[in-house]
């Protein structure tokens, strides 16, 4: 089998999604049996300018990174956005809610005017280049990553859920977080995580971003039913870049 060449690139992020690839453990051996990893800075020293599939982790926060991303897009036949930072901007998008000068001032103080501290508003990968496939989540779910890779090798468009987390949460027989009077983003968030947070007793933070047609208005309306305010909901929606 002619193995497709895969390169993994990282931009602004915590590298936790790449770590999920490492966390595949034995399955990494399976992975490299069907693809050739040609560049993966976090895991190996080799570098390459030739690849079929480029996997992009992280959000884009600087003009020079936009340029690098465009170059990657030109070289790659398939470009995959890996994880919430790449697909939606992720937690880094919270920065955009502040005045950029003020943010820099706060973190760097007197040094904030230095030119190398330049930072632009956070962008998701598809705000700059065309993205062929998105693997959602913060961090990604490694089983989903594996499924997506196998689908792409097979020549099949990966089947990413477009229904709310509630579907998986119900299948896992969790007690609904709303029964505990908590604001859970499950009803408007894209499934695929197997409702991991509610299964561990926490509300859904919406890390996979909204489904294609989220009923966000209903989410605001029902806050009253649970003695909450719409602002509290919106607050939580901002964490991973929900609108």
């Amino acid at each position: 089998m002619n193995k497709p060449k895969v390169a993994i690139f990282d931009f602004a992020g915590c590298e936790g999604c790449q770590l999920q690839i490492v966390n595949m453990e034995e399955e990494i051996l399976d992975l490299i049996s069907i693809v050739r990893l040609v560049e993966w800075r976090e895991g190996m020293s080799e570098q390459s300018e030739e690849y079929d599939v480029a996997i992009i982790e992280g959000s884009i926060t600087r003009p020079q990174d936009e340029e690098k991303l465009r170059q990657i897009r030109e070289r790659a036949k398939i470009l995959v956005a890996l994880g919430a930072c790449a697909t939606d901007g992720g937690v880094n998008k919270m920065k955009n809610r502040f005045d950029l000068q003020e943010v820099k001032q706060l973190v760097y103080g007197a040094d904030s005017a230095l030119p190398h501290l330049d930072s632009a508003p956070t962008k998701a990968v598809d705000e700059i280049v065309q993205v062929d496939h998105k693997i959602y989540g913060c961090p990604i779910d490694r089983r989903e990553f594996a499924t997506v890779v196998r689908s792409l090798i097979l020549g099949k468009r990966p089947e990413i859920p477009n229904y709310p987390v509630c579907v998986e949460c119900k299948r896992r027989e969790n007690v609904c977080r709303y029964e505990y009077q908590e604001i859970c983003l499950g009803p408007i968030t894209r499934a695929g995580c197997d409702a991991r947070c509610p299964s561990f007793g926490a509300w859904c933070f919406g890390c996979r971003g909204p489904v294609d047609e989220p009923n966000a208005q209903a989410a605001r309306v029902i806050m009253e039913r649970y003695g909450k305010r719409a602002e509290d909901l919106e607050d939580r929606m901002q964490l991973f870049g929900h609108k």
Binding site: E15, T61, R62, N92, V103, L106
Partner: peptide, 30 residues
């Protein structure tokens, strides 16, 4: 490394959501 300004971003966040945000500082030592 591209700076990410967590100290600035967490301002205004609820104590309930803070851990979720700052965990994302680092995937390895989350």
């Amino acid at each position: 490394e591209a700076p990410r300004f967590f100290e600035a971003m967490v301002r205004g966040r609820s104590w309930e959501d803070l851990q979720t945000v700052v965990s994302r500082i680092c995937g390895i030592c989350s």
